[in-house]
Design a protein around this nucleic acid. Sequence first.
RNA 1: GGGCGGAUAGCUCAGUUGGGAGAGCGCCGGCCUUACAAGCCGGAGGUCGCAGGUUCAAUCCCUGUUCCGCCUACCA
Length: 889
Amino acid sequence: MASKVLDKSYDPHLVEEKWYHYWEKRGYFKADEHAEQKTYSIVIPPPNVTGVLHIGHALNNTLQDILVRFKRMGGYNVLWMPGTDHAGIATQNVVEKQLLEERLDRHSLGREKFIERVWKWKEQSGGTIISQLKKLGASCDWSRERFTMDEGLSEAVKEVFIRLYQEGLIYRSHYIINWCPRCQTALSDLEVEHQEVLGKLYHLKYYFKESDRFVIVATTRPETMLGDTAVAVNPEDKRYQAVIGKKVTLPVVNREIPVIADPYVDIEFGTGCLKITPAHDFNDFEIGLNHDLEQIKVIDEAGRMNENAGPYQGMDRFECREQIIEDFERDGVLIKIEDYRHVVGHCYRCKTAVEPNLSLQWFVKTKPLAKPAIEAVRNGNTRIIPEVWEKTYFEWMENIRDWCISRQIWWGHRIPAWYCGQCGEVMVSKETPTACSKCGSNRLTPETDVLDTWFSSALWPFSTMGWPKETKLLKQFYPTSVLVTGFDILFFWVARMMMMGLKFMGDVPFRDVYIHGLVRDERGEKYSKTRGNVIDPLDLIDRFGADALRFTLAALTMPGSDLKLSESRTEGYRHFANKIWNASRFALMNLDHFNVEEMIEEYPPEEFSLPDRWIRGRLNQAIREVQKSLEDYKFNEASHTLYQFIWHEFCDWYLELTKLYLYNEEGKKRQSLTKRTLLEVLDSILRLLHPFMPFITEEIWQQLPQRKENESIMIAKFPKPDDRYDDEAVADEMGLIIEVTNALRNIRGEMNLPPGEQITVLFRTKSEEVEERLQENQSFIQSLALVQKFKFGRDLEKPLYSAFVVVRGVEIFVPMERSRMEEEAKRLQKEILKIEKESAFIMKKLSNEQFLSKAPPEIVREVKEKALEFSSQREKLEESLVKIKEMLG
RNA sequence: GGGCGGAUAGCUCAGUUGGGAGAGCGCCGGCCUUACAAGCCGGAGGUCGCAGGUUCAAUCCCUGUUCCGCCUACCA
């Protein structure tokens, strides 16, 4: 079968879509839960269903796709489970913004209508990110795509909620939580971002009852004083012993509050007096509980002062702050204001400053769940890679606090609870109850809160596989092989999946967790819309091709560090793709009439040419390195190996050498064996590269002569080394050719000999064996270094005018005109200087008694050999230089 | 406050049983050599953050230090 000649350069646009459809249509992405093979599975970190692909997704999914394709080619039954997340607060916010543009809001619409709107928006935009993942080449099993609000997954959510509730691991309680006044919902501790802000520290006077004496308290949030129910001092604090138990009067509201003693208070800080607002501060809340203090809320859900705020009622909390300070100043309550840097929590979705607020919420008791999750990582049941993240994981897990899971939004999984209007009983069940289980009343009202999105995400590894049903899929593919994700959701997601997986599946959700870094721009800045430095992966795909983008991301991914993406790098890998394309083009042109039948017969390695045997040996090495690197999640190493091998060994040396055989009609058998090697090595290269660059490798692979219909590189086998070609003698012989060629090229380059100028080369060597080898391989050197004529001899006369170099003890002369001798002298001088520098260091070592006696003998031997080589080389070069100088007078 | 990571060529970064450093891009010089100018050949460029210590030998191990990032946290 004759193969087609490729176009002159690679155009990704023409091939990417075509092959993606081909793979998908043929069902290559599908996992088979009935197959007997060994399995490999990954669940995708579900992107926001209404989101668009950003560069972080591109990285995350490229890495997964590389692993998945690698394993598929390695003979595994692979499941890559795709899907999307409903992203409660984020999605609700987007739709609310849309409504705002129509001068509507969700309350005027009503819950049902609003949720309809969100579903509509989901339908409308939900396909976007999936189609973008396809552009990247992601080989997910799309037939199993899931969404966290699917019926099945919702069933899992209910099941988990109910079971945890029944076990007492979910409870409902009045507690102080983080509240976002903008989103008007509770947030978990994790959803609060701590940011340092420049605020003020206000010092206020609280007078003792009917007295001129007062204590001074300091606060950053003076408006909360309206809810103060005590002033606390440290029990050890000598200054305040007398006032403990006395009462002070709050300004403005004139409420009397006690001075209490609590060891939490820092004697050193400020005046040592701390105002206590149990309803609006986490610490104060705890102290309040310990001292049985009243909890007075003064700020409402929208962040406005409420009815307990007296004259300030209805004011925004920040407005109130200004007003109250003005009033205090007037009344002499304010002593001073200091600039003060401190940390304030902000909503991770809308960046509004959160308000700690007392409210009735649902919580997961996490300590009992965290324990086995810690254990699983400690005993290696789940590995976190790179290992440094284990510490972070432990740190958080060991100090975990109860998880507030209720959200006062509409978009999400409704909490399956009902309240009896008669007796107040709380009922939790899958089905809507018709009557109170306690008093029989039918006056039931459902819970309106929904669950934290991460609650459903935590179930992802098993809910997507059909849990709570005992499916074949779960049996085959749970636990998953690896989770690939960024460190930013280690706590949000990974830790919670660990807890839930262990709890409900009785086993960890994944064997490995591979944590990659963040993609940043060239300057190391995070990509962000506000910074305006966003880079669109689809734009990069469009300009450079998906393969180039994928390879860039893989090459920049090193364990444990962020990656700085630069366009020039992606451009470079587009060049790499083009290089592969052209190398293949060369191969295919020469394989045009190659009869694949010739490949049936087996020949021993000795029958092949030196370059053939050498490249196959190098290929073995490349295969081993890529295999090992991928198994260790060292994507950069694998990429580097591929790049180096393909470009600088296969293209730079091997392809050049094949020309000797391919362009020479004599030696038909050699030519046939060369073509065979060319084809086989190219085929291996393509397969080796396929997980990284799926599109171009398929496009070329389909053009290879031995292809049958209905095949695809995607389901071809990952190459295996052929150890018959691990031959040191071959490597050594080829090494000699390469070194000699480099030396001659150096002379050409340094002496400015244009390629048109042919040279004669004289080899003088003491070793018969080396001379023979050079003779045998002279044709290679001839073509690579553009040599016209060779001379060999053990006692060759040095030509009067020539350039001179020593390689492996072989003296090499390149005769040239006298006029170039000035240049040669300079070149020699440079070489000598280099050797001098190196040998100075070595001589220092050898003159050190300690080194000779204490260093390992083989090291000493090596150094001695090097010293010998250097000195002989130097001697020869100097000799040569002296002669030239004499000659030039 | 606690923890973690980084500092190596002009730029972005590799570099593990410690034996004097590599890549890509950029730069300089030469080539349109029948796969590729998105290419080929050659070259320049580095007291490996600073100071100590261990060792025959330190970019690598230990201690301290400076600078830069990140995570985390209940000093008002």
